[in-house]
């Protein structure tokens, strides 16, 4: 019960940034204590090539399972394998990313192990026998600090909350055989689609870029679309002024008499911020406004504002977001 397991998430054969964050988090916990950091990497044959990056961020051991059945995330076999591994007894803690995959995987593993899980934490520390974690609750308006007493301690970490810091180790790769048939599942994936092939619905999109009358004409709306595209996970919204003019369909209207949305990030471009519009987006977690009128009411609800001309600001912002996204991988 001394090692720490970090689940290293990959997608399509590429290591995700959250994998490094998980390893780095585990490293932080292990430092100054005995025990190793074991990164667990499931994937198709060849996935072991990523072991180097994991060593770079602090893994002592990279446990690799190479099997075609793990090429894509298979929730049932992955959770069974991880649970089995943890149950083998060598671990005092297991770290997951609270990514879409991790949010699916970690509670399954905890359920199989009949133990508690500290989910979506933004910080963690060891305190005596327990782990102390923080976790945003009440839509981020209250921060809970909780003590995790379970052994082993299962923890999933919010992506981006704990930065991945390089702490190179000279580690070893251990190839492990899968348990059972990794391709088997009672839930069968019949089809997948990526967001560029399928437009994100306003209700689901984590980011919404919305345009208002400030864009002046239908033919300028591509500026908004390009910014949304740069985010990669964004949908396009509009004010009633815009849908009335027919620049966008009515189904894109956000507000009291349109859609009510609550994304993580809302970017209001050339929008004045009338009460009817605010009613539809006020509860977004972060609001950014770009408007040339510094007295526009939208700035009263915005977390960050840029006073400026959309035609000047938007192309620069689009480029900057593209670069920031690329840096993340």
């Amino acid at each position: 019960m001394t090692h720490i397991l970090a689940f290293a998430e990959q997608r399509g054969g590429a290591l995700r940034k959250v994998a490094l964050e998980a390893v780095s988090t585990a490293r932080g916990l292990a430092d100054g204590q005995d025990g190793e950091v074991h990164a667990l990497l499931l994937g198709a044959p060849g996935i072991a090539a990523h072991a180097e990056s994991l060593f770079e961020y602090g893994a002592d051991v990279v446990l690799v399972v190479e099997h075609d059945g793990f090429a894509q995330y298979n929730a049932e076999s992955a959770s069974a394998f991880v649970a089995d591994r943890i149950a083998s007894g060598a671990y005092r803690a297991a770290i997951f990313a609270a990514s879409a995959m991790g949010k699916d995987l970690a509670p399954r593993v905890a359920g199989k192990l009949k133990t508690a899980l500290a989910s979506d934490v933004t910080s963690l520390a060891r305190e005596g026998d327990a782990y102390v974690v923080t976790h945003p609750t009440y839509t981020g308006k209250v921060i809970a600090t909780a003590r995790l007493l379970a052994k082993p301690a299962l923890i999933s970490v919010r992506p981006g909350a704990i930065p991945a810091i390089a702490k190179p180790r000279t580690g070893r790769v251990e190839k492990v055989a899968p348990v059972g048939d990794p391709a088997k599942s009672r839930v069968v994936v019949t089809e997948t689609s990526t967001s560029d092939s399928k437009k994100l619905d306003l209700g689901d999109a984590p980011v919404i870029v919305s345009g208002g009358r400030g864009l002046k004409a239908s033919e300028h709306f591509h500026l908004v679309e390009e910014l949304a595209d740069a985010f990669g996970n964004a949908a396009v919204g509009a004010t009633r002024a815009v849908t009335d003019e027919g620049w966008r369909p009515h189904s894109d209207q956000i507000g009291q008499t349109g859609r009510v949305v609550s994304p993580d990030l809302y970017v209001a471009v050339g929008i004045s911020g009338a009460i009817q519009h605010l009613a539809g987006m006020r509860t977004a977690r972060t609001i950014v406004a770009i408007n040339r009128d510094k007295d526009a009411p939208i700035f009263k609800v915005a977390d960050y504002g840029i006073v400026g001309d959309v035609f000047e600001v938007l192309p620069v912002l689009t480029k900057a977001i593209r670069e920031a996204k690329k840096a993340q991988g």
């Binding site: 009263k300 977390d303 960050y304 840029i306 912002l317």
Partner: peptide, 11 residues
């Protein structure tokens, strides 16, 4: 309502 800055320079 924090204004980050003015124009493209604020990006």
């Amino acid at each position: 309502g924090r204004i980050v800055g003015e124009g493209a320079a604020a990006v």
